[in-house]
């Protein structure tokens, strides 16, 4: 007789638990991969835009940190955006399929997110503040970039 089963726990429950742990592990792997890409890109932006740049505001550690927090707050299934520095010191996040299927988010040092999407003939845009949770509007438009692409 097996002793692996805790008292009062069925084989089905154990199997379910194994599946759940496997899914969680896979999710952590995805996060690790995603964060690696995120961190590499943030380092590139820092090296290119924070140390020396004429006729432009440097990207600060604060802005990079807000951009990082925003990307990490997104659902894990979302793709990591392409991250670049902007001439005004903001950090640009781009979700891109092609030139008429794109969402740009410009992260400012004071936590404002300026965004504009171009999806076919639709051209929504707006401004919102990042409070630690991704704004629903942006979640919607990030999804729309990839739906039926």
């Amino acid at each position: 007789m097996s002793t692996a089963l805790p008292t009062g726990v069925s084989r089905a429950a154990c199997t379910l638990d194994k599946v759940k742990r496997s899914v969680l592990r896979e999710r952590e792997d995805t996060i690790t991969f995603s964060n690696h890409s995120l961190h590499d890109q943030l380092i590139d932006v820092y090296e290119e835009c924070s140390l020396y740049r004429t006729s432009a505001k440097p990207v600060t550690a604060i802005t990079l940190s807000i951009a990082k927090d925003f990307v990490e707050s997104l659902p894990h299934a979302f793709r990591t955006p392409e991250i670049t520095g902007e001439i005004d010191g903001n950090v640009n996040l781009e979700w891109f399929v092609h030139r008429r299927r794109i969402l740009s988010v410009s992260v400012s040092e004071n936590g404002l997110l300026y965004w504009a999407a171009l999806i076919g003939e639709e051209d929504p845009r707006g401004t919102c503040r990042f409070y630690g949770e991704p704004p629903n509007t942006l979640l919607y438009w990030i999804r729309r970039v990839y739906v039926n692409a």
């Binding site: 740009s104 410009s106 300026y114 504009a116 845009r125 401004t127």
Partner: peptide
């Protein structure tokens, strides 16, 4: 800025 980004796109 958001309007500028839209036109730039």
């Amino acid at each position: 800025k958001a309007d500028q980004m839209s036109l730039a796109s």
